[in-house]
Design a protein around this nucleic acid. Structure first.
Lengths: 119, 119
DNA sequence: CATAACGGTATCCTTTTTGACACTATATGC
DNA sequence: GCATATAGTGTCAAAAAGGATACCGTTATG
């Protein structure tokens, strides 16, 4: 869970920044949102994209994103189970934010090591 | 400390996103960066802007930001001590990112409560 | 002499987050 | 009859993050 959730925000001017970080923070949330921007995905599809994520963690992250109204969870009454995840309107509106993050990352993060001296 | 720091980034395509999040995540980093965008600040000036931050936490966050090359710490050999913090080039380049975060937050976060239903 | 300002450290403790691992139900294919 | 796929849940433990509190040296000020 993010550090401050659904509590009054009493911090100073930079606060909206923290507010968003609280939503997209969490070890996998950023990547999940990023992948969902390309379209609807099922649970195990996401799981395969996020190697190393455990089922429990993935479930948690998805539940939190859902609770924050960023994604939509659609359960099909089938067997074997089928659950689809997609971005909500609110989630889709985050696109520029994620893109800004990705652009900066691409431009400023060496992929094997962050070399601060050379920056 | 961010969850993954200065390690190889072996995650999939959304990874730069996580990379940046790892840098600006931390309870106070976003706000610190935000405030430093308006100009150089001394330790206690930052502290006064971040009510409720403890000295230890502030020191930690500043040290991490410094280690990531986002801010510059300048110590003056005076008494009483004087230490100035300012954004590095790399830090300043984060401005569009922080602005994107802030814009979304301003537009999408109710200040007293996140109302998911109404979103 | 005592106090305050400055920019921290050191130590301890609690909370939060993440990870490992086992377990579930049902239907299908072999 | 057994394994496989799906989308989870439950429990426990470890690690990371954050918080409380006390302390440091120096100088100026009262």
């Amino acid at each position: 869970m993010p550090r401050v959730r659904h509590k009054t925000f009493d911090c100073s001017a930079g606060c909206p920044v923290e507010g968003v970080l609280n939503l997209i923070d969490g070890k996998w949330k950023g990547v999940i949102l990023y992948h969902l921007m390309s379209g609807t995905l099922r649970f195990n599809e996401i799981r395969r994209k996020l190697i190393n994520v455990t089922q429990r963690m993935l479930t948690n992250q998805l539940r939190e994103l859902e609770a924050d109204g960023l994604i939509i969870r659609k359960v099909y009454a089938e067997v074997p189970p089928k659950v689809e995840y997609s971005l909500s309107e609110r989630g889709r509106s985050l696109e520029p934010v994620i893109n800004a993050l990705k652009a900066w990352g691409d431009a400023n993060l060496a992929l094997d090591k962050i070399d601060v001296e050379a920056a």
